[in-house]
Amino acid sequence: MNMEFNVRGMDFTRAGEASAKIKKALQLVGMEVSTIRKAVIVAYEAELNIVIHARQGILTLFVHPDRVEIIAEDEGPGIPDIALAMQEGYSTAPPHVREMGFGAGMGLPNIKRCSDHLDIDSRVNSGTRLKATIFNNINGE
């Protein structure tokens, strides 16, 4: 099964809608509770990264019996230094976004913590592609 969602930059009125639909889909197919929790955290952080930093992007969900894959691909500024962006606390989010409680520099670290595999490809002034894999562990963790 796969599902695709368009995400628009700076559209905070719809921020989180794609992740909510991803959660419902994963519940419907009967994924483990711990898998769903990790997948929705990855989906929400990736969705908000597009909203906060990019012009637009696409969030895609692939569901396999043994794993969930989430791909976030955007047109945006790109990430010049991925290792730096992975450090907790590093953020380039603007002040009005931080005032809402976003942009604490915890998004990518959260995604990494919840993923079993994570690939990030980015080109400056072009965009970023993130692919996260979460295994559906039947025994919880």
């Binding site: 905070f12 921020a15 955290i41 929400y44 809402m100 976003f102 915890m106 998004g107 959260n110």
Partner: peptide, 30 residues
């Protein structure tokens, strides 16, 4: 910080916050 809550709050928790915008409800629902 919404990412901190995502990382550390558990299902069934009451969430105490100063924020009042709809993204709080989106995160709470997830």
């Amino acid at each position: 910080l919404l990412s901190d809550v995502l990382a550390n709050a558990s299902g069934g928790d009451l969430w105490i916050t100063i924020h009042r915008h709809r993204s709080v409800i989106a995160v709470a629902s997830l």
